[in-house]
Structure formats: C-alpha cells, structure tokens
C-alpha cells in the first residue's frame, strides 16, 4: 500500500492538538516492546533488552500520557496496558477479547502506531503517548470514520467496534485513496463475531471519500 501524507483533514478536524501530530508520532523508543499492528505493518519487534532497573513484584507509580493528558497511576509490573486503561483509568472503550494479541479488540495507538494493549505492558509505554478510542472524537466532534460507522450501520453488538474504528482511522490517516483491498488489509486482524465486516468496508470507503 502506498503512503500518502494527509493534506488537510487532521488540521481541519481537530481543535487544539494536531491530530496528525500525535497519530504520525515519532516511532518507538522504549526497549523491549513488541508491537503488533492490525494491518499496515504486520509485525515489528524491538529486540534490544531492557537495561538495568528491575521493578516489582509490588505496585509502583508511573505516569502515562493518554489522550493528551498526563495520568498518574499505581500498577503492578505485570499490569498490561489494557488493564491499566480499563481498570485504573476507567477507559473501558478498549476491549479485551482474546487477551493474547490475536483479535485487535484492544487496539490503541502508541505514538500513532496501532498496538494490541492486551500484550503491551503498562511499564513499557514510557514517555510515548497513548491514544484510545475515547480520544478519537475531539470536543464532541466525531472522526469521519466514526460518522460513517453510524451511517452505514457498521456495528452490531459493538464489542469489536472500538478496535475496528482504530484500525480504520489509522488506515485513513495514512492512506488517502484506499481500495476495498486496503480496508480489508487494515482490518485483517480485527475479529468481529457478529459478521459486520461488509458494513465496515462500506463505511471506511465512504469516510475516505468525505475526508478528501
């Protein structure tokens, strides 16, 4: 898939923080992190071992930037990012379905890249910024992908929807003219048991048109 830089959507849509700024991000910095993406890149691993400090087993305080705000939380080192978001920050839009990185229901962006929060450790996030489904709409204004999901009935039970929206938002932020095959590739890791895929495809292609 070819990469296009976005022209005007990000600036036009977001108020305050530039969407493009945090979605594109600065790449991975923390050692030891394994990142699965939901499509655009299949697999990316950082094999450098973590240096020095050991933590745990007791809880420790960490700071994490989530949806534009610094958050302080106290977690055990074994806490996953999904658990930190859901149980510590009450950001329950991120869903845990398979709990081992194979269904993408827990997709969040770390410095703009989609990762599975269920197999990312909270401590590994470091100083990178996390964007969850709750951070996709800005000031009550929905992202075009969210608008299109509503219009094309692209959710049934809705449990896969946050992850599905994240995958499609990531695609459209990186690809201006996606084909049906691109949408399928971008959502190929997203499990939907209700079988809502055809409407997800339609919605995403329609959102791409509107974002032009």
């Amino acid at each position: 898939m070819k990469k296009n830089s976005k022209k005007s959507h990000a600036e036009g849509h977001s108020k305050g923080l530039s969407r493009r700024g945090f979605l594109r991000g600065a790449g991975l910095t923390t050692a030891g992190t394994v990142v699965f993406t939901t499509g655009v890149q299949a697999f990316e691993a950082h094999t450098q071992p973590a240096k020095g400090t050991s933590f745990g087993p007791g809880s420790i305080g960490i700071e994490m930037k989530v949806n534009g705000r610094m958050q302080s939380l106290t977690v055990e080192p074994r806490t996953t990012l999904a658990t930190a978001l859901r149980d510590h920050l009450s950001l329950t839009g991120t869903k845990v379905v398979c709990d081992r990185g194979s269904c993408s229901a827990c997709t969040v962006f770390i410095d703009g890249k989609p990762v599975n929060a269920c197999i990312t450790m909270a401590l590994d996030v470091g100083d990178r910024e996390v964007i969850t489904i709750e951070g996709i709409a800005r000031n009550g204004e929905l992202h075009p992908v969210q608008e299109a999901f509503i219009e094309h009935d692209a959710s049934q039970c809705g449990y896969c929807t946050p992850g599905m929206v994240m995958s499609c938002v990531h695609l459209l932020e990186n690809e201006e003219n996606p084909s049906l095959e691109d949408v399928k590739a971008a959502t190929r890791g997203n499990l939907c048991r209700c079988g809502t895929y055809p409407h997800v495809f339609k919605a995403t292609l329609s959102a791409a048109e509107k974002m032009k």
Partner: peptide, 14 residues
C-alpha cells in the same frame, strides 16, 4: 451507534 463508535457504551465487563 454513537456510544458504540466512541467507546462510551458500557457493557457488563466494563
């Protein structure tokens, strides 16, 4: 639908 696409929908597990 809006609650579902924004992650605001609260399921039992939430």
């Amino acid at each position: 639908a809006r609650a579902k696409v924004t992650g605001q929908a609260k399921y039992t597990s939430d």
